[in-house]
């Protein structure tokens, strides 16, 4: 067993733990913080299922972004949909018996990888060229894009240019899931690819990637328009009612 394999295995365990615990903690914080007033952005759905559908449209189609800016929307969809396909393609590394749907999706996963990188480069280009977006961009915004581009490009590189020992990679990840560390191939592109993924997992709960849980907790999007029918008292605000004269 090479030291490198052990290091990468431990990194993956640590990163997975940090990401999951960090996200759970953050989501718990969001869920337990009260919303003292009804603030859905109007016009808003009148029913709970309507509000859920509104959030679904936001998550699945980036509805508001579509209204806002067609270029950002195109690049964002390319990136996110591409990433989703690429991730789906990667599921095979975690399954001894690969599901039929994952087998079918394999070629699309490659297009996904290409779309993802194209989308990222588009977003990055706007960040540099478009004056307003350049103004609001900080170092972390560029670094986050760089990290994602590294992940995408190093992955595509393994597909199209320098193949890695994919059978051994799969053995490594299946081993990880069974707490039985296996040998990891040591070629550079793979180590860069996996190292960047580890880094992404670690920064996930501490960065703007919190937009992933955040979109589900946004009161302007997920609240139902029913303020005249129901009171919406926050626990901290309720005692104030005792002070009023009538």
């Amino acid at each position: 067993m090479s030291t490198l394999s052990v290091i990468y295995a431990l990194l993956f365990y640590a990163a997975a733990a940090l990401m999951v615990l960090g996200l759970v903690f953050r989501i718990k914080t969001y869920a337990s913080t009260p919303t003292p007033l009804k603030i859905p952005l109007m016009p808003a759905p009148l029913t709970k299922s309507g509000a859920a559908f509104r959030v679904f449209k936001e998550v699945a189609f980036f509805e508001s972004l579509f209204k806002s800016n067609r270029w950002i929307w195109i690049f964002a969809v390319l990136f996110h949909a591409g990433l989703a396909l690429a991730l789906a393609r990667h599921v095979r590394y975690f399954q001894a018996d690969v599901w039929m749907v994952i087998k079918l999706i394999q070629p699309f996963g490659i297009y996904g990888g290409l779309a993802m990188v194209a989308g990222l480069l588009g977003l990055w280009g706007r960040r540099i060229v478009q004056e307003r977006i350049r103004y609001i961009s900080g170092p972390s915004d560029h670094l986050m894009l760089a990290l994602l581009v590294v992940i995408g490009v190093s992955g595509l590189n393994m597909k199209f240019l320098a193949h890695t020992d994919i059978v051994q990679v799969k053995a490594f990840f299946l081993g990880l899931m069974r707490f039985n560390i296996q040998e990891l191939p040591t070629d550079g592109p793979l180590l860069i690819h996996l190292g960047a993924v580890v880094l992404l997992m670690i920064v996930f709960p501490f960065s703007k990637l919190l937009h992933v849980p955040g979109v589900f907790f946004s009161p302007s999007r997920n609240q139902v328009d029913d303020a005249r029918d129901k009171r919406h008292l926050a626990p901290w605000a309720a005692p104030m009612d005792a002070d009023r004269e009538a």
């Binding site: 953050r26 009260p34 977006i133 937009h211 302007s220």
Partner: peptide
């Protein structure tokens, strides 16, 4: 006291 404030301060990705 206000979920919106926390979620909004966390979630921005500077998309423009």
């Amino acid at each position: 006291k206000n979920r919106a404030l926390r979620v909004y301060l966390d979630s921005c990705v500077k998309c423009g």
